[in-house]
Design a binder for these strands. Sequence first.
DNA 1: TCTGGGGTCCTAGGACCC
DNA 2: TCTGGGGTCCTAGGACCC
Length: 425
Amino acid sequence: MASLFALVDCNSFYASCERVFRPDLQSRPVVVLSNNDGCIIARSAEAKALGIPMGAPYFKHRNMLRRNGVAVFSSNYALYGDLSARVMNVLGRFSPRMEVYSIDEAFLELSGMPGGAERHARRLRATVLRWTGIPVSVGLGSTRTLAKIANRFAKQQERCRGVFDLDNSLRPELVLNSMPVRDIWGIGRRHARRLEAHGVHTALDFRNMDRNWVKRRMGVTGLHTLLELRGISCFGWERNPGMRKSILSSRSFGRPVECFAQMREAVACHAERVAEKLRRQGSVASGVTVFVETNRFAPGLPQYANSGFAAVHPATLHTPTVLGAALSLLERLFREGYQYKKCGVMLSGLEQEQGRWLSLLDPVPGDHCEQSRLMRAVDGINERWGRDTVRFAASGLERVWTMRQDMRSPRYTSAWAELPVVRAG
DNA sequence: TCTGGGGTCCTAGGACCC
DNA sequence: TCTGGGGTCCTAGGACCC
């Protein structure tokens, strides 16, 4: 049987999370800021209606937000991650096949549902709202790209009440014609501009384009998008991602960093974090990259950005090994006399820890086992007693460079000290 | 004073091989 | 005047996603 894809997408996810434990915010506009309180990265419907753009720098809009009584939050990933897991858990009950696509989206296979896919989707939507407090929209289509379009339509059209089935629509052309080409999944700003200059303005225009032109100008990715709009599925279930191929930890500093000692702490901190993430997905890494950069939004100041790569052999999951590689890279990269804004550590060349490739020249596997056991013990303690209970001295105690987060809500669901309190009477 | 932090895939071009 | 043809691997950079 042909696939029927459902894309389930949480409405204004971060803003909705903030509302779950704050019913008083139900009809107030809400925005959530990126790390360091830099940009606006989530807006409730009311905030969108005020014309607040996605990704706008917070400091440029602060007064306007205050004037309009907008509730502003620093991002609280502990809360969003936990609520996301709850939503995904509920979704899993509604289909034998599901792929979590991002923190707030999942694809589900909904072909052959008794009573029809749309009814099933409406039940799903009501259940997620009742059990988690998060409103979602559902789009149905015969390909992922069409499901994305259906989802967008469901959000835009009040009369859809959160669910739209493009596959069962009487006039799918009308829907495609109402969708600007820049809103198609897989067509970004660059390609959208070129297409518009070429007289292609809607998803319908794009669907009717010459496939050779598209292939030539937009590569196979563009061609796949075109075919998906025509109902030919190019992104099926088999390419199910699962394991990451690279892992990054990076942050902007709360204030500029100039001295090597502080930069060293920050890099060490990212090295620890990134090795932790690596172990969580059961991998080992054979490459470490470190990068540093100054503030590119301050062109008046001296600019410097650089990165360095080191191969690690044999592939490792051992924090001290990653840490050592990262710190010696930093010594080569660091230059005095700059105000640094950001740094990060990336791991690449990832393989599964189990069944990885071994060489005759490698040190005895016993080393690896011992390191692996040690790191698991450390991870176990930190999981149980909280992040950084056991940590490496190199990552510092003071950490004056950490980000600003002045308006974070409590971690209602993941920290004992911050549970919501219910008062009687 | 203040502009996020993750990821993926594809392509072109160079080095190298037979 | 003429200067093969095919392949692999790697890397940097572009484009896209949330």
